[in-house]
Design a protein around this nucleic acid. Structure first.
Lengths: 210, 210
DNA sequence: TAACCTACCAAACACTTGTTAGGGAAGGAT
DNA sequence: ATCCTTCCCTAACAAGTGTTTGGTAGGTTA
């Protein structure tokens, strides 16, 4: 297990010098299969089949099946937090912040649909493993961002104060992210259009006002 | 493989003559483990451990690991549709039907939380297998009931007509059922209380009206 | 007492799993 | 022509998988 020179599967820097785009292709197909059948139910042979090579050959590019999962999830979360942090740094009002977060979320679903689906399905038990501790950390920041926004809005009289904030948080969070389970890019609606309609439902409700 | 008399694992009748309640206990623990770690990631030895017997002994009660899953899901769906059919048979107005369906759903989550979690996680790919074809059938009826109610409501002027009905359907459906992933019986809120708050959010929205 | 049934154990089975070791073809650099 | 790097294949490994077979302790029935 000695480090014998510059092997392509160094660690987890997505941007490498010689630009191994094959690696990206393999990760994309792996993510697709993971999302479709679940991580545990996916065999490395299945991934290899889908990618057009043999199972053992995957280990030229990656350390292990788990490291593929790791790279898929961490890449997604890094990009997600880039977007979220930009929104939060703008220090908009509660309602505008919520709108921006939801819109940003649907954009991420559009870009990283398989990763989001995997995250939804596996993050809970993965977060217990030390290797995936960043999932728990991410969930913590997640809750903080959304709950804070909702609390600010309730205090400012923008959001209803008669609701259980924690329940509302789960409501909004789940509402947004489960969309990854049915969303297909290139469908009838753009991410922004879906975000608009979701926001309209979450904020105004589906009932007609008298 | 000849049928040698009245073995306890006959088929799938949950109510048997000699009342083998041990079977129910084993199914309950199996459901719990399936829900916590996923079906594929769960080994029969793990289930046996949790239940306090050895892996092979499970096969005295059940034909296979898959038949356990089958019985868990079909039992849940049978009971779910008992409740749904009662609601639909009452032929209430669109809004009252939606309220009743949501409330009934949260009651089912309260009663069958592990089964609901398993269903959420595995139904999509399970439905492709012939053995679990009833999952696809159930989903079809599901969509029909919810979509029909929403359409009736939009036509009657009870629900907003400016929304994509199919999007609203997914919105309501997902909003309700993902609750199974975090709901814990005996928590702060009763199923009815959660249903009330969810309905309030879905119908009226979380924004304050000016 | 003898036969029987229930619910389990002990030990193995065939198979699939992720992973590794060694090798080799193609092509650019020297 | 030689070397090196990249990318893949072949063939196997050990561990873990769902499942089966035969046996048995303890209670119930005849």
């Amino acid at each position: 297990m000695t480090d014998n020179g510059p092997v392509p599967n160094s660690k987890k820097t997505a941007t490498e010098r010689p630009a191994p785009e094959r690696r990206g292709e393999l990760l994309a197909t792996a993510a697709e299969v993971f999302a479709a059948h679940g991580y545990n139910a996916t065999t490395v042979r299945r991934i290899a089949d889908e990618a057009g090579l043999l199972a053992g050959s995957l280990y030229y590019h990656f350390d292990s099946k788990e490291s593929m999962l790791d790279e898929i999830l961490s890449t997604f979360l890094d990009e997600l937090w880039d977007g979220y942090d930009a929104v939060l740094a703008a220090r908009l009002g509660p309602r505008e912040t919520l709108e921006a977060l939801v819109t940003e979320s649907f954009r991420e679903i559009d870009r990283h649909r398989p990763a989001v689906a995997i995250y939804q399905r596996e993050s809970r038990h993965l977060a217990l493993q030390p290797r995936f501790a960043y999932l728990a950390e991410s969930q913590r920041r997640f809750e903080q961002a959304w709950l804070g926004t909702l609390r600010r809005g309730a205090a400012a009289g923008v959001f209803r104060a008669d609701l259980d904030v924690r329940l509302a948080y789960r409501f909004v969070r789940d509402t947004v992210w489960v969309a990854a389970s049915w969303y297909r890019p290139g469908g009838a609606h753009s991410p922004e259009e879906i975000a608009r309609q979701y926001l309209s439902m979450v904020l105004e409700g589906i009932a007609v006002r008298e």
